[in-house]
C-alpha cells in the first residue's frame, strides 16, 4: 500500500533529527530507505555511559506490520544482547511489536533495555549468568567493553596508534574494522601484507 512508504519517509525525518533523545538513525546509503544505521547513546548512570552504540536496522517489506530487524554492530556486554553476534532479545522486536510503534520508539526501548537488563529472559546465557552471580564482575566487564568498543574517540585513537607504526590511515582503519578493532590482529594483517 502506498501509505507504508510515506510513513517510513516521515519516520526517517523524525529519527534523523539531532535532538536530546540520544537515539538517531539514517539510511546507510542514499536511495535505500530500508537499510539504516542507528546510534544509541549509553544511558547515563549505567555501565554503558559515554558509549555510542551502533545498530544495524533493516526495514522489511511488511513494515509496519512486522518489526524492524535490529542488531548491535558495536560489541556490548548485556544479558539481552549476544556478545558474539549483537542479536537482541526484546519483546517489542518480536511478538509484542505493533504498528503503533516506530523505529524511534524501538530505539528508545533499546536504550531502556540498557538501563534495565532482564537476565531472566537472556539472549546471552553467559552474560546473564555473570549478571546474576557476580554483579561486580559484570559491571567491570560491561564498562571495559564500553570503553574498548563504544567510545567514539577510542576508534580514532586506535587508528592513530596503528598509523604511528608506519601505516597509512586508510589501510589502518580498514584493517581495524575488519578485525573488529582488535589492534594486534589488525597490525598482524598489515605486517603480513608487506
Amino acid at each position: 500500500m502506498a501509505g507504508a512508504n510515506g510513513r517510513l519517509v516521515k519516520e526517517l525525518k523524525e529519527v534523523s533529527k539531532n535532538d536530546t533523545s540520544g537515539v538517531r538513525a539514517a539510511p546507510v546509503s542514499e536511495g535505500n530507505l530500508r537499510h539504516l544505521l542507528a546510534t544509541v547513546e549509553g544511558p547515563s548512570g549505567t555501565v554503558y555511559e559515554g558509549g555510542i552504540f551502533e545498530i544495524n536496522v533493516e526495514i522489511g517489506k511488511q513494515y509496519p506490520f512486522e518489526p524492524p530487524k535490529m542488531k548491535f554492530l558495536t560489541k556490548i556486554w548485556h544479558p539481552n544482547i549476544s556478545s558474539q553476534t549483537g542479536a537482541i532479545c526484546l519483546d517489542i522486536l518480536k511478538d509484542q511489536w505493533s504498528p503503533a510503534l516506530t523505529i524511534k520508539t524501538a530505539l528508545l526501548s533499546l536504550q531502556a533495555l540498557m538501563c534495565s537488563p532482564e537476565p531472566g529472559d537472556p539472549q546471552d546465557a553467559e552474560v546473564a549468568k555473570m549478571y546474576l552471580s557476580n554483579r561486580e564482575e559484570f559491571d567491570r566487564t560491561a564498562r571495559f567493553w564500553t570503553e574498548s568498543f563504544a567510545k567514539p574517540t577510542s576508534k580514532d585513537e586506535a587508528v592513530q596508534r596503528v598509523c604511528e607504526m608506519g601505516f597509512d590511515e586508510a589501510s589502518a582503519r580498514k584493517a581495524l574494522e575488519k578485525h573488529k578493532w582488535d589492534e594486534s590482529a589488525a597490525v598482524n594483517e598489515l605486517l603480513g601484507a608487506i
Binding site: M1, G3, A4, G6, R7, K10, E11, E14, P64, P99, A100, L101, T102
Partner: peptide, 13 residues
Amino acid sequence: GYNEMTIEMFYEE
C-alpha cells in the same frame, strides 16, 4: 495519545 503519523494510513484505509 497515539502518534498521528503512525495511525494515519490505517485510518485513511
